[in-house]
Nucleic acid binder design. Structure first.
Length: 231
DNA sequence: GCGACAG
DNA sequence: ATCTTGTCGC
C-alpha cells in the first residue's frame, strides 16, 4: 500500500479533484508514427491479492516491440467505477519505472478526460509521470455517442450531456468502435491519430494487446507456485 | 430511492 | 477484471 494512498472513496475523489488542475490539455503531443509508444495494462488475482502490471514499448513506425517490463504487487484499492486509477496506478508506475528506456506516449486501457470528474486513469498516470498519455477504452462507460459511419477511421463525439469528452473511433470496418479520450499533453485529434496508427489489423491498439498478453502471462507465472495445478 | 457504471 | 468450449466466419 503506497504512502498516502487514499483509504476511502471520499479521499480518492478528493485526490482526483486536486490533481485534475495539473492536467495539460493544450499540447499537441508527439506526432503518430514517430518515436515510441508504450502500452500498459494490469491483471488481477483477487483471491491471492496479487496484481501484475505490464508495460510494452513499441517502435511507433514499425510497431515492433523494443522493450517490456512487468511489476508484481498487492491490490491496494477495490474496483469502483470512477476510481479505477487507484487500483491500477501503483503497479503501472512500477512497470514503467522498470523499463530500460523512455516510454514516449503511453496508451492506457480505459479513460482519461472521459470520466465523471474529468480525471480518469490516463489523466492520473499522465499527471504523476509527466508523460504524454491517452486513454483507449473498450466500452462507452456512462457516455453517449452516435454510431460512427462503417469505414475504419470514422468517428463520432463521445458525449457527457453536450460536452465532448472523447471520441468513438472506428478502428475496423463495421466493427464496434473504441472510445478514445485525452490523458495528458496530447490533443484529442492526435490521440485518435495515434490510435489509428496502432490498429493496422485489430480493433484494439497493438500497445494494449501486447500489454494485456504480457500481464496475463506474468500473472499466471507469479501465481503458479502458490497453488498446485489441479487435476 | 434504485440502477448503471472504464478495468 | 474474471469464470470458460466450441463455433461461425474471413
Amino acid at each position: 500500500m503506497p504512502e498516502g494512498w487514499p483509504a476511502t472513496e471520499a479521499e480518492a475523489r478528493a485526490v482526483q479533484d486536486e490533481l485534475r488542475a495539473r492536467v495539460i490539455l493544450d499540447e499537441p503531443g508527439p506526432p503518430p508514427g514517430t518515436g515510441r509508444v508504450t502500452g500498459v495494462d494490469v491483471a488481477y488475482d483477487d483471491d491471492r491479492d496479487v496484481v501484475v502490471a505490464a508495460a510494452v514499448v513499441l517502435d511507433a513506425a514499425t510497431l515492433e516491440v523494443v522493450a517490456e517490463a512487468t511489476a508484481v504487487g498487492r491490490i491496494c484499492f477495490p474496483y469502483v467505477p470512477g476510481l479505477l486509477a487507484f487500483r491500477e496506478v501503483p503497479a503501472v508506475l512500477a512497470a514503467l519505472g522498470a523499463l530500460p528506456c523512455p516510454p514516449g506516449v503511453v496508451v492506457c486501457d480505459g479513460y482519461g478526460l472521459a470520466h465523471p470528474r474529468r480525471f480518469g486513469l490516463a489523466s492520473h498516470l499522465g499527471v504523476l509521470t509527466g508523460l504524454p498519455t491517452i486513454g483507449v477504452a473498450k466500452n462507452p462507460f456512462t457516455f453517449t455517442y452516435a454510431d460512427p459511419a462503417a469505414p475504419r477511421g470514422s468517428s463520432a463525439a463521445l458525449l457527457a450531456g453536450s460536452e465532448e469528452v472523447g471520441r468513438a473511433l472506428r478502428t475496423r470496418d463495421g466493427v464496434k468502435p473504441v472510445f478514445v479520450s485525452v490523458g495528458h499533453r496530447v490533443t484529442l485529434d492526435n490521440a485518435c491519430a495515434h490510435t489509428l496508427a496502432l490498429t493496422p489489423r485489430y480493433r484494439l491498439p497493438e500497445t494494449t494487446r501486447r500489454a494485456d498478453a504480457l500481464c496475463r502471462r506474468a500473472l499466471r507465472e507469479a501465481t503458479a507456485r502458490q497453488e498446485p495445478t489441479s487435476r
